[in-house]
């Protein structure tokens, strides 16, 4: 039997909002260490990797490893039925073909359960090579979302240039050209407002805005976002999920024709 409980539905609702527009479906691989999901978007340009550790749940039981193929649009609809402060429990029998979501109101007066059919998804797992990235940028998640949204007005592509001075986001097209330069911060009082750049060597990479803007749907999950870059390898956009895990988006770069 599988059972996982969170005392607050907010985080799970935000996780679904962070992936449901990019992925139509995904397999939740459950084991006693937690829940993993890895899936490519339909165009195979980006990859989402979600990790939720079992010790981050208020109750977690996984008698046997279980892979649950979910239609993420349907799962998001079910989670819309939960209040943020509801307790949410995900339950499934071993080798079941359905999964149940139970929502309990804080005052215990209202208990709802939603059953959803599981799907047989034969999604192959991709190996993600360990990489020592040339540049790692930690910055406010809201700032990154704002830059991606603003620059998407100028072009389908954003050029990210990272040097020891700072990180620059550029886009140019018919409207004109835009450059947003962020310098490393040194004396900020709040950690989550800092811009920290660890640079082994400078990089210049080009990415499609539409995927970056899909990734920023995860912004409500974390104050900070981490961008990891190396020449000619996918960008990693990572949002930590406090006390539970993280969501990592990988985006293949664009190259000169």
């Amino acid at each position: 039997m599988f059972e996982a409980r969170l005392n607050n539905a907010t985080t799970l609702k935000k996780i679904l909002d962070a992936i449901k527009d990019l992925l139509n479906e995904g397999t939740f691989d459950c084991s006693d260490s937690g829940i993993q999901l890895q899936a490519m978007d339909n165009s195979h340009v980006s990859l989402v990797s979600l990790t939720l550790r079992s010790d981050g749940f208020d109750k977690f039981r996984c008698d046997r490893n279980l892979s649950m193929g979910m239609n993420l649009g349907s799962m998001a609809k079910i989670l819309k039925c939960a209040n943020n402060d509801d307790t949410v429990t995900i339950k499934a029998q071993d080798n079941a073909d359905t999964v149940t979501f139970m929502f309990e109101s804080q005052n215990q007066e209202k208990v709802s359960d939603y059953e959803m059919k599981l799907m047989n998804l034969d999604q192959e797992h991709l190996g993600i090579p360990e990489t020592d990235y040339s540049c790692v940028v930690r910055m406010p998640a809201m700032e990154f979302a704002r830059i991606c949204r603003d620059l998407a007005q100028f072009s389908e592509s954003v050029v990210i240039c990272c040097t020891k001075e700072g990180v620059k986001f550029s886009a140019s097209g018919d409207v004109g050209s835009a450059n947003v330069k962020l310098a490393q911060t040194f004396n900020v009082d709040k950690e989550e407002e800092a811009i920290v750049i660890e640079m082994q060597e400078p990089v210049v990479l080009t990415f499609a805005c539409r995927y970056l803007n899909a990734f920023t749907k995860a912004t409500p999950l974390s104050n900070q976002v981490q961008l990891s870059m190396s020449a000619d390898v996918p960008l990693v956009v990572e949002y930590r999920i406090a006390e539970l895990g993280h969501i990592r988006y990988y985006l293949a770069p664009k190259i000169e024709d």
């Binding site: 165009s43 195979h44 192959e124 797992h125 991709l126 996918p234 664009k254």
Partner: peptide, 13 residues
């Protein structure tokens, strides 16, 4: 600019 696919970087495990 040509968009590469993620599968040209990450191979099936």
């Amino acid at each position: 600019m040509a968009q590469r696919s993620i599968t040209s970087f990450f191979k099936p495990a």
